[in-house]
Write a protein that binds this DNA or RNA. Structure first.
Length: 742
DNA sequence: CGATAGTTGCTTTTT
DNA sequence: GCAACTATCG
């Protein structure tokens, strides 16, 4: 290791002279694997790997080997000694992608990729901010607030300002503030355009004040503060612009304004920035992502070279054709024509089902079928639009005994007991962490109730101090009496004692001590509820996970930034996930479920941002389809339970937008008859008419409440309910039912 | 202060 | 169909 590094250092020295003409200078590329990889690239890919100087934009369609280009390029930089690991800044979209990229690079260079600055914008910014925290008014031990903490804090502020908690719902306030932060706007740079914004701006200011007191930063701050650091301290910026000789950015279409400005500052040194992205896969507009960034690249970085990757290696011709016809409906895109050498293959299946339950049953059957044909479960994915849809599949798979994993979904670190345990760790590491303190103050029950908490809050606000600090001062006075006083005293004393052990005790052991001595473990041991044993199990798991890290603060950073579940990738499992978390992945078989108007495209996205919202949904559909290599199966349900209410839906407009030569329609079940589309004049589905029929009735002992909107034809004859989905040519007949008295 | 029962509103998507 | 909040009482 040492020897290799010093060799690298020497060759680096030899290479510090500017490389005028890299392509003709001899390159020292010694890795067999790298040579193999590079020689298998197509001309466009090779070009993207070899242009290492100056700004480069790789416009890469779905399945065109974008990741391969990026990793090969990185490996090339290292092997040719143009840069050593610490001089490469590589920004990816998820921590998982960063991890995989690191592994691939290590393989290509047949050595270690340690020392690379490889990670998400957030993790890189944390790394930088920890070093210069004082310059932006934080201590280097600052806490990273997660969404939950953020909402709690905002809620407190809204309450303190006695504002209408409905109009200024924490969620809404948080999202407005976050959007401002995404655009790189600190409070002073904002000119509110309405009274509503004026108030939120005030809340934004208060919120930032509170964060400062708490020595905390939220997700948006990580980028914003780092940006501020670079803008206010040119010496710090210079340090990094000289260090990073090469900058690589994955998924450039998902960057927001703040991230873009951040990148521009860093890239101004060498100008060696390579961005990879696909405007058709921009699906994070709602999070502040600016497609404009990618569309403007040439203007932003003069002399930029643009390389297009258009040969798709992933999907079969039908899937690619269907996806292309879909995305071509969008205006305002770069426009790429993906093509493939593959021919034949299965057409895209489209299947209508009666309800969500049947959808799950159908998918379950298909999975079993394919599995019987010795298709790996790892090669199958079920993609949903919204998180709640996973449940029906989980239930079905549990009864069928099909192993599955939910990606994204409910995370380990979001569980009640894990969050409590985390709060204990946080308050020990970070004395100012009011939110953690509030959380554990009376968990387990110590007799410190709401009235005590109120006194603390009031004092903390008046004196501009953190909650634990307020507690510390108030137990010296007579403000708090009796049981609460002694309990608080003991707690604060305990926290102090644990903190003093931070340097002397191994952190795994310390965690156990904290959980035991605080009485937290005992609380669950005494608990007789059925969840209690599981929670204790999770606490053990928590300590195990914690021991994997070098220290408690490192672990806490990991938890805030890496929200992914620790999943066992080796086991055979079907993946269930949202379309958003499917980005960047690929599978042989992909089930695209819930393609119904209102769910996909989602009602909210249509309502809020109109045409732009619809286009983003369409891109989402495109992303989903292009995940599939061999088989894509689209399903839609005629009925779905939303908020415990049955609602009938009509097939997604996206289904009609798929070129008919690439799709095949099916229907399932004995009770459904399929008739070809009669194609008669239909009411405009985009302007739904008021619900004309709304009835509650029983079907097989179950109560249904259905609203039939959209002017669709529903016939009720005798004990039969018939719904005619003219739009798709699908007619469904439901078995006997009894109309209720309602 | 804390336990309990009843009530409401909620679900897009995530670093 | 659930979590999170509210009202009431011991």
């Amino acid at each position: 290791m040492f020897e290799k590094d010093s060799l690298r250092a020497i060759s680096h020295k030899m290479n510090t002279q500017p490389h005028q003409n890299m392509s003709s200078s001899p390159q020292i590329i010694s890795s067999r694997r790298y040579i193999d990889e590079a020689s298998s690239l197509n001309p466009a890919q090779r070009q993207a790997v070899e242009i290492t100087e100056g700004p480069l934009l790789v416009l890469a369609g779905a399945g065109t080997g974008k990741t391969r280009v990026l990793t090969t390029r990185l490996a090339s930089l290292l092997l040719s000694h143009k840069a050593w690991p610490s001089q490469v800044l590589s920004v990816t979209f998820t921590n998982k992608a960063a991890f995989e990229m690191k592994e691939r690079v290590a393989k290509l260079i047949e050595g270690s990729a340690e020392g690379l600055w490889l990670g998400t914008f957030h993790s890189i910014c944390v790394r930088i901010l920890r070093k210069h925290a004082e310059l932006v008014g934080l201590q280097s031990s600052f806490t990273i607030l997660d969404t939950d903490d953020q909402l709690r804090l905002i809620k407190q502020l809204v309450k303190a300002e006695s504002l209408d908690e409905k109009k200024f719902a924490p969620r809404i306030v948080a999202s407005v503030i976050s959007r401002w932060k995404d655009r790189g706007l600190t409070p002073s740079k904002i000119t509110p355009t309405s009274d509503f914004e004026k108030i939120i701006l005030r809340l934004y200011e208060f919120y930032q004040d509170r964060l400062r007191i708490l020595n905390a930063a939220d997700f948006g701050d990580l980028i914003l503060l780092c940006l501020k650091l670079f803008m206010d301290h040119s010496d710090v910026l210079a340090q990094y612009t000289t260090q990073f000789r090469y900058i690589l950015v994955d998924e450039y279409q998902d960057t927001n304004v703040a991230q873009y400005l951040w990148l521009r500052l860093l890239a101004q040194g060498t100008g060696n920035i390579c961005c990879v992205g696909d405007d058709d896969q921009s699906i994070y507009g709602w999070r502040g992502a600016e497609v404009g960034n990618i569309l403007r690249f040439e203007k932003d970085f003069p002399g930029a070279v643009i390389v297009r990757l258009e040969q798709n290696y992933r999907s079969n011709a039908h899937i690619l054709g269907a996806a292309s016809s879909l995305i071509s409906q969008n205006a305002g895109r770069f426009g790429k024509t993906l093509w493939t050498e593959k021919t034949g293959g299965e057409k895209v299946h489209i299947q209508g089902v009666w309800d969500g339950e049947e959808e799950a049953r159908l998918v379950g059957e298909k999975v079993e079928d394919l599995h019987r044909q010795s298709q790996s479960l790892n090669q199958m994915a079920i993609l949903v639009r919204a998180g709640f849809q996973t449940r029906e599949f989980e239930e079905r798979f549990l009864t069928l005994g099909i192993p599955y994993r939910v990606i994204g979904g409910f995370r380990f670190y979001e569980r009640l007991e894990v969050r409590d345990a985390l709060a204990y760790m946080r308050i020990v590491v970070q004395p100012q962490d009011s939110l953690a303190f509030e959380r554990i103050m009376n968990t387990p029950k110590r007799g410190i109730g709401t009235s005590t908490l109120q006194i603390l809050h009031q004092y903390a606000r008046c004196e501009q101090v953190s909650l634990p600090e307020a507690a510390l001062r108030l137990i010296e006075t007579d403000e708090i009496r009796g049981k609460a006083k002694t309990a608080l005293h003991t707690l604060l004393h305990d926290i102090g004692r644990w903190r003093s052990q931070l340097t002397t005790t191994p952190h795994g052991e310390l965690a156990r001590i904290i959980l035991d001595e605080s009485g937290y473990t005992a609380m669950w041991q005494v608990d007789k509820s059925p969840e209690a044993p599981g929670r204790l199990e999770n606490l053990k798991e928590f300590v195990n996970a914690l021991e994997e890290f070098e220290s408690l603060p490192t672990f806490l950073d990991h938890v805030s930034l890496v929200m992914e579940n620790i999943t066992n990738t080796s086991a055979e499992m079907v993946s269930i996930m949202t379309l958003h978390s499917a980005k960047g992945l690929e599978f042989n078989t992909v089930f695209l479920t819930g393609w119904e108007e209102g769910l996909f495209p989602h009602q909210r996205s249509l309502g809020e941002s109109g045409e732009a919202g619809l286009e983003e949904e369409r891109r989402l559909a495109y992303v989903g389809l292009t995940r599939a290599r061999e088989r894509a199966i689209i399903t839609f349900a005629a009925n779905r339970r939303v908020h415990n209410q049955w609602q009938s839906g009509i097939p997604s407009r996206f289904i009609d937008e798929l070129s008919s030569q690439h799709v095949e329609r099916f229907t399932v079940g004995k009770r459904h008859s399929f008739s070809p589309p009669p194609r008669r004049q239909l009411p405009d589905i985009h302007t739904p008419q008021p619900s004309s029929i709304s009835k509650t009735f029983h079907v097989k002992q179950r109560v249904f409440h259905m609203k039939f909107g959209y002017g669709y034809i529903v016939t009720i004859e005798g004990s039969k309910l018939e719904i005619d989905f003219d739009h798709s040519g699908l007619k469904m007949v439901m078995g006997s039912f009894v109309e209720s008295a309602e």
